[in-house]
Design a protein around this nucleic acid. Structure first.
Lengths: 187, 187
DNA sequence: ATAGGACTAGACCAATCGGTCCAGCCCTGT
DNA sequence: ACAGGGCTGGACCGATTGGTCTAGTCCTAT
């Protein structure tokens, strides 16, 4: 209902969303323009109209879009939580569901679109910026639950690493169990 | 001294090592046969002599070789440690050094060679098997330091996820600091 | 009504992709 | 000495890659 290309969506959005979908599964270099255009049901001209630099522009747009989704999921998880741990638990369950829904073979949308791409400074900076956004957002929630800035930063970084590593492990195993059990490990 | 192709090494080893080097930096699909052969100073015929299935065989061999290196590094770290945490600390520092020596832009050698490759069952299984090897080895060390099997398993999985996630974060930031400070976060 | 920009459609391109194939070199065993 | 296999060197292949370019369509503002 949200990631597969939908006909009524504007072409640009269809391109971004199907790009995000394909990149996180096959990686930047594992996806050809033909795959992208097939999935988005768009001709080549449209791609280069909306994204003058072609594939690389699209990858950054797709990663940004995916990051926004992650931030919304975090907001939904921590927004109504009673503690940081509570929010973390909710988030892990949401992510596990997303993982299962994706066929248990998708990777991190940011890593897939950006790490795997050209090793530009632009790509590296975009990756850093997006991840930093996740961490500072998590830190923000932790502060909201009473942690000091320093403690919150620590929690947020561990939060990030556990989710990133947990997702990798889930992908290798083809099972979301490790994501579901992640909250038990988080101090 | 260890990863760059050396002339005296047999061709097969040169192929494996430079493949491991390239894959972890650019990903499976980001490396062409021409790059591989240039780096290994080998002709195309040699590749298909030693690896009949070509690039995919080579990727699995490279990942296996890289995994052996990781297991040796783990053995060197935990072998003389006085506690699991002590060994973990040593390992993190060794990994941080490796990260810096690689130019701070390499990824996990297993993910780069296998996740990014064709989504065969063979590739997925190899990834799972290698990661499971790291985890069960860590579990083994934890048991050696007195933990119960169950506790050791928990520690080993957290160990894996923190290193995996920490490396990803270090790569995004272009800094090994997060790896060096990882031990502070571990229980 | 019509001018003009936003957007689409796809033919076309050079370069590169992974892979096949075979002639020949070289080393070893006899 | 020479036979034979392990291994090398590289020409060659069709398919696909990311990207360019232009003709044409459609929608909107006047």
């Amino acid at each position: 209902m949200n990631e597969t290309a939908q006909r009524p969506l504007p072409t640009k959005d269809r391109l971004i969303q199907s790009a995000a979908h394909l990149f996180r599964r096959f990686g930047y270099n594992g996806v050809g323009l033909s795959d992208l255009l097939d999935a988005a049901q768009a001709p080549k001209g449209s791609l280069y109209h909306h994204f003058p630099n072609g594939k690389s522009d699209l990858a950054i747009a797709a990663a940004t879009w995916a990051s926004d989704g992650m931030l919304r999921t975090m907001a939904a998880s921590f927004g109504e939580a009673e503690s940081f741990e509570d929010g973390f638990t909710t988030l892990c369950h949401k992510l596990a569901k997303l993982f299962d829904k994706s066929g248990q073979s998708d990777g991190c949308p940011i890593s897939g679109a950006l790490f795997d791409g050209p090793d530009n400074q632009a790509f590296r900076q975009a990756t850093d910026h997006i991840f930093e956004g996740w961490i500072s957002e998590a830190q923000h929630y932790a502060v909201g639950f009473g942690a000091t800035q320093e403690d919150a930063r620590q929690k947020a970084e561990v939060f990030f690493m556990l989710i990133q590593g947990g997702w990798t492990l889930a992908r290798a195993r083809g099972s979301s169990d490790v994501l579901r059990r992640l909250p038990e490990r988080f101090v």
